[in-house]
Simulated scan of single mutants.
Amino acid sequence: MIRVRLLLFATLLAGGLLWTGCSSDSASDSEPVVSPTDTIAPETRADSVAYRLLQAHGMDAWASSPYLRFNFGFETPGGAQTIARHLWNRNTGEYRIEWSAGPDSSYVVLANIRDRQDGRLGGSVYLNGEELTGAAGETALEEAYGRFVNDTYWLLAPLKAFDPGVNRTYVPDSSTADHDVLHLTFDEVGRTPGDQYWLYVSTETGRLDRWAYHLQGMPEDAPPQFYDWTQYRELSAPGGTVRLASRKEAVGADQALLTNQLALPESPPEGAFSTPDPMLGSE
């Protein structure tokens, strides 16, 4: 596998905060349907900006989405490259991730992101259709979980501002007429709770236009890294429209991170969470 070194996104982001996904138990016809944003009562200016962010990106629609499909990769002047392909059953936690081990070799991991014991992900690993066990399989499962944490955060960060353990602060000195700026820090949750993020929320659209981050593993005096969130896609879901950026452009560098091939399918391909051979395409 070619590891991404030219950008800092190889580092696991956001402290490993997890989505629980949709509830598998739907409300009865006699019960009122409560949307996720209805359960939030903003108490501070930071909360209000974060709440507007959730609404602009379609939090309620996202909560109704049973499946998520996307690719994670990067682009430089030399071209674009896909690092991993993801398919997530948000109702059950079932997860499929594929990545290349070389020109003619591919890993397929079939796991359930809710199935973690002693911090380790449970599931099956296949290399070119053959199951891997032992240390090689455990290493691949750990890499798969790392990819899930890292890659989904690059895609879904605007929808995670109210996750448990997230601390929100409004940054008046950085805010402008065009953007409200939120500073996110984390309690002792996830893999890298020392990460910090600054979210530049458009005062016009409420969407995330830019973020900056200083990761736990970076030197304390290292400047934050900035990326513009661009090429927004509008995705239809049972509960409305979800808006997600498919491209993140590094500020001051000719390179970008890609979260593309976005889809919220109503159902997965046959065998999506059981077939050991690659099936998510070669985009």
Rank of each mutant, 00 (worst) to 15 (best):
H57G: 09
H57T: 11
G58Y: 04
M59E: 14
M59Q: 12
D60R: 00
A61F: 01
A61H: 00
W62G: 09
W62F: 15
W62L: 10
A63S: 13
A63V: 05
A63F: 03
S65D: 03
S65R: 00
Y67K: 02
Y67V: 02
L68C: 08
R69Y: 03
F70I: 08
N71R: 12
N71F: 12
N71I: 00
G73K: 08
G73Y: 11
F74E: 10
F74G: 10
F74H: 15
F74L: 12
T76F: 10
T76R: 13
P77A: 13
P77K: 02
P77R: 08
G78V: 04
G78F: 07
G78L: 15
G78H: 06
G79R: 09
A80Q: 15
A80M: 10
A80R: 14
T82P: 09
T82S: 14
T82G: 07
T82N: 12
T82E: 13
T82W: 07
A84C: 11
A84S: 15
R85H: 12
R85F: 08
R85D: 05
H86W: 09
H86R: 02
L87S: 04
L87P: 07
L87H: 04
L87I: 08
W88N: 06
W88H: 13
W88S: 00
N89M: 03
R90W: 02
R90L: 06
R90I: 02
N91D: 10
T92N: 05
T92M: 06
G93F: 06
E94N: 13
E94S: 12
E94Y: 04
E94M: 11
Y95H: 12
Y95P: 05
Y95A: 05
R96T: 05
R96D: 08
I97E: 10
I97L: 12
I97M: 12
I97K: 07
E98V: 01
E98N: 01
E98S: 03
E98F: 03
W99Q: 02
W99R: 03
W99K: 04
W99L: 04
S100F: 10
S100Q: 13
A101N: 15
A101S: 14
A101Q: 14
A101T: 10
A101G: 12
A101M: 13
G102D: 13
G102T: 00
P103A: 14
D104E: 14
S105I: 06
S105A: 15
S105L: 03
S106T: 10
S106Q: 14
S106P: 00
S106Y: 05
Y107V: 07
Y107R: 08
Y107D: 01
V108H: 06
V108F: 06
V108C: 09
V109P: 11
V109T: 10
V109R: 11
L110W: 06
L110G: 01
A111R: 08
A111Q: 08
A111C: 14
A111T: 10
N112Q: 11
N112W: 07
N112H: 07
N112C: 07
I113D: 09
I113Q: 12
R114H: 14
D115Y: 04
D115C: 09
R116N: 00
R116M: 12
Q117I: 05
Q117E: 07
Q117A: 04
D118N: 11
D118H: 05
D118T: 01
D118F: 03
D118S: 11
G119T: 04
G119C: 02
G119M: 00
G119Y: 01
R120M: 11
R120P: 00
